[in-house]
Design a protein around this nucleic acid. Sequence first.
DNA 1: AAATTATTACTGACTGGTCAGTCATTATTT
DNA 2: AAATAATGACTGACCAGTCAGTAATAATTT
Lengths: 214, 214
Amino acid sequence: MTEVVDTPKDVPAIGRREQQKEAKRLALVDAALAVFSRVGFAAAKIDDVAEEAGVSKGTVYLYFDSKEQLFEGMVKAKMIPLLSNMAEIAGDPQDSASDRLRAHMRFFYSKILNSDRRQIMRLIMAEGPNFPHLAEFYHKNVLSRGQALIGAIIQQGVDAGEFRNLEGHGLTQNIAAGALVAAIWKLVFDPFQPIDLEAYFETHIDLVLNGLKA
Amino acid sequence: MTEVVDTPKDVPAIGRREQQKEAKRLALVDAALAVFSRVGFAAAKIDDVAEEAGVSKGTVYLYFDSKEQLFEGMVKAKMIPLLSNMAEIAGDPQDSASDRLRAHMRFFYSKILNSDRRQIMRLIMAEGPNFPHLAEFYHKNVLSRGQALIGAIIQQGVDAGEFRNLEGHGLTQNIAAGALVAAIWKLVFDPFQPIDLEAYFETHIDLVLNGLKA
DNA sequence: AAATTATTACTGACTGGTCAGTCATTATTT
DNA sequence: AAATAATGACTGACCAGTCAGTAATAATTT
């Protein structure tokens, strides 16, 4: 149950409502992520989202027009912080391609695989075919951007004679792939075979760097 | 719409019913896979499964006790052929570890990623948290077996001085991972960025073999 | 600054439609 | 004609979405 900010009554009146609204929107988004993660889109009840946000069912519909829009809105809201982060890791082009690649991959592992974000990834895998908008949005804003960054670094490495040229054969997909699986594995199979994300990451980067070595 | 075998009336009476029953069970399983793949577990309607199997709703309940059991039964039924195949590819221990690894990985790509089977994988990712039995079953019978085979081959390679020793750091998970992602990518993101499974496989095995090289 | 009015936010009982699962009836097989 | 299989109308629970009514806040008047 996410509590709405309890704005004191003696705060400058102006903006009280806006603050509350914003806080409530956040609470709804958090609650939606929790509920959808727990049971999937179809089985999720708006009543449960409302209760978890500390709000009545009708209120949910003041913020989102439908269950679909709640879902899509939640995914987008949860992804925006990540997207803004992505710019800030252009990385130092002075470094070797290996170092930059390692740094970028670490970024993805830590930002995408940690916390809530991996639930979103799983939801997109799970519900993607029923929400083509969302799958496209995710691909466009996360996967293809990530691949572009990785592709650029690899190109740098190839140009510098540091890497072999494997481009054009699904290489960036292959690299992105490792992160996707780690997220899903953690959520689905961890009870049966725990995945040590740090070790998995090291192995992944090791294989990639050695595999690419010229 | 999967048609039930139309056993002619003048066939030796003995076994007519059993044949029909078996055929109907198969039709139901096929229909269930199709419908669950299309819309997920919660949104799937038993009526749709029945219609797609060319049968009435009541009949579904003559074969499966509940929607849950239909789902679980379908997954298991669809997996059995794969499991029996797995024995037959022990591979020739005379070959180099590299060759054997390549052969095994190709097997997984072709058997798991082709046809219906990848839909099952996606369903397990999607519904796994709601069906822990199934996730466990899948892990036990597919993933861990696959990893065991790969692990054995890598051990051979390490013993022969062909591979570096990276064991114990999520290596087999990492290798299995590539196949999982390929399957999911194909189903979720293919419309936006088609994945060439053959090229992807070659890149994957290339990275792994070069990455492992002693 | 108290009282009054207007506006905006929220509530939860209700509705209409959906669907898993049942079972009395009908059809088919032996 | 007995036994077995299949049907599909029916039921009851469930839930997305609505809306008349209430509460909280802001604006205006006295």
